[in-house]
Amino acid sequence: MGALIWLASYPKSGNTWMRSFLHNLFRNSHQPVSINEIDDFCLGASASAWYKRYTSTPPGEMTDEEAARYRLQVQRDFTTVFPDSVFVKTHGYLGEHSGVPLHNMDVTAGAIYIVRNPLDVALSMGPHFGISTDEAIATLANENAGSRGADTHVPEHYGSWSTHVRTWTRVPSPALLVMRYEDMLEKPRKSMKTVAGFLGLNPSADRLERAIKYSSFKVLKAQEQKEGFKERPEVSKAFFREGKRDQWREKLSPDQVRQIIRDHHVQMERFGYIPDDYRDAVPASSEASA
């Protein structure tokens, strides 16, 4: 029986990239692992198949209360999949919902948390969820943000971007590794070596390099174009779109940038996401916006 290692992030912040990297690193193959095999390596916290063991209610009709009733036991069931570490993807904030923790800490060994600039997250969320940029900005600030149940998953609870980041990162711990998406882009070798070290691994330079290469945005996008990606929402034309940083400078209006900063300035400040030329958008009050 293993213990859970959460791969946590707000949606569209690099979770699939991290899962692909780890899958390629552990598999150590001489060709890229298929993106459609990621769930063989990393479980999904909201995957409906695990809940069907305990209820006949269709996932799309499951209420928050019913999902909460089985959540902790389902996550305990995850520990039976592998004898050691069990990686689990989550987009949930770290806290309770419907009176039950969203993550079972009794069977948790640690977590890797990926944070991404919300100015870019807003741009990625729009096409991914089939909503406008303004709607994505509103979602980022919505404390009740989440996804409804569907055939493949039970309801998920994100909270606002600020709440998500704050709840996962406010208490430093040796069992928690916090990674910035932007650092992963700019310094992939250093970043991924840090991830491997956190997991107690010391891969050879060649093995690390292959895992980085095989999980690169270029490779993932090419795989999706060739074979599709089962995690792509029906409303989205492509799961892997740009994979770049600072696109907001060309695609967000000044008013949109200022709104995001007003909504999330506390956590953005912590992670170096407030642009110097938009410092005037930070509210005078230092009270948390999360």
Rank of each mutant, 00 (worst) to 15 (best):
D84L: 03
T80K: 02
Y54L: 06
N15W: 06
L43C: 05
Q73N: 01
H103G: 06
S98A: 14
D106W: 10
V100Y: 02
A67H: 15
Y51L: 02
Y10M: 02
D77K: 07
F82K: 04
S13P: 05
M105D: 12
T79A: 02
P11K: 02
D39Y: 09
S9F: 04
V88A: 14
V81L: 04
G44Q: 12
E65R: 15
R19F: 07
F41S: 12
W17P: 04
G44P: 00
N28Y: 07
F78L: 06
D64N: 04
V88N: 06
D84I: 00
V86E: 00
F41N: 03
Q73V: 00
S46I: 01
Y93K: 13
H97I: 01
F41H: 14
S48I: 00
H91F: 03
F26H: 04
G99V: 11
Y51P: 06
E66D: 11
V33A: 15
S9T: 02
K52R: 11
L22P: 10
K52M: 10
F78Y: 12
A49S: 09
L43M: 09
T79C: 04
R69T: 06
N104Q: 06
T79W: 01
Q31Y: 07
Y93P: 12
Y54P: 05
H23D: 14
N36G: 01
F82V: 01
V100M: 00
D39H: 13
V86W: 03
N28F: 03
L22I: 07
G60W: 00
Y10E: 06
N28P: 05
C42S: 14
C42K: 03
V88D: 15
Q73T: 05
R27D: 15
V33S: 14
T16A: 08
S85L: 11
R27A: 07
Q31R: 14
N104L: 04
A47T: 08
